[in-house]
Design a protein around this nucleic acid. Sequence first.
DNA 1: TAGCACTTTGCAACCCGGTTGCAAAAATCT
DNA 2: AGATTTTTGCAACCGGGTTGCAAAGTGCTA
Lengths: 141, 141
Amino acid sequence: MHTNSDIETKLAGKGIKPTANRLLVYRALTEASGPVTLAMLEDSLVTVDKSSIFRVLTLFLEHDAVHAFEDGRGVLNYELCTTDGACNMTDGHLHFYCEACHHSYCLDTIKTPELVLPEGFTPHSLSFVVKGLCPHCRHSH
Amino acid sequence: MHTNSDIETKLAGKGIKPTANRLLVYRALTEASGPVTLAMLEDSLVTVDKSSIFRVLTLFLEHDAVHAFEDGRGVLNYELCTTDGACNMTDGHLHFYCEACHHSYCLDTIKTPELVLPEGFTPHSLSFVVKGLCPHCRHSH
DNA sequence: TAGCACTTTGCAACCCGGTTGCAAAAATCT
DNA sequence: AGATTTTTGCAACCGGGTTGCAAAGTGCTA
């Protein structure tokens, strides 16, 4: 488990001043079993206002503490960055969105392929999302 | 160019009864240089209500006349299906979203890779979107 | 420690894309 | 024509995301 000072160290390493809300949000991200949405954080952090969570997340994004991607519905999902440096397309991996339980999975065992774009297109980031049924929903069908 | 009866034939082939609005929307899709959003169609089809365009597009989706994907902002983009049969993930191809001009490109020369999901995950559709700068915006930088 | 500046937070309100209920208009069917 | 079904426009709503603003908190410095 992560003590508060563990988290403070992590945040400091990314150049983020630790506040009470930032510790709460960071902890929620570490304890999540996968990518989480703003709405999920709102539910689990009832003491913190939606806009505050949002601002913490955007701060984390700017400091490469988390990365974000859209699931199949256009909802942003956030995940802690595992790498220490900039967290960009180079560590891109596949995400899976279950259309039954509306849950996102991070399939980080599957890397996105390196790709060759037509002349002139300069990539910054990428998202690769597969929609379908997750193992659980497929069986309970 | 496409005459109205050309379009009517196409729609009939997909099992869609041609109405005035459906012809207008279909024509707008054929004349677009790439994927279009609901907002873009609202702008170009000033005589047609937003909700009507929306309902036409969902009808087209159900009849595999168009397919849709989200660009990098979570906005739906629509494209005419080129294949005759069901338009699903099998003809998946890459899309590029320019963060400067907010325009989506259909890079249909680049096919999405065939992928192997972990046991139990059943794919239905997929989206593969690269964000960055398009050739034009890159030069006018 | 008082006074001042800067940062962070909560609240309310807004924005925008997407979506729906409903009644009017248009097409379809005897 | 009259009855029925489909399509349409309007208005309103929804939900995720975002912002303005004032209050609360933090951290100075004198």
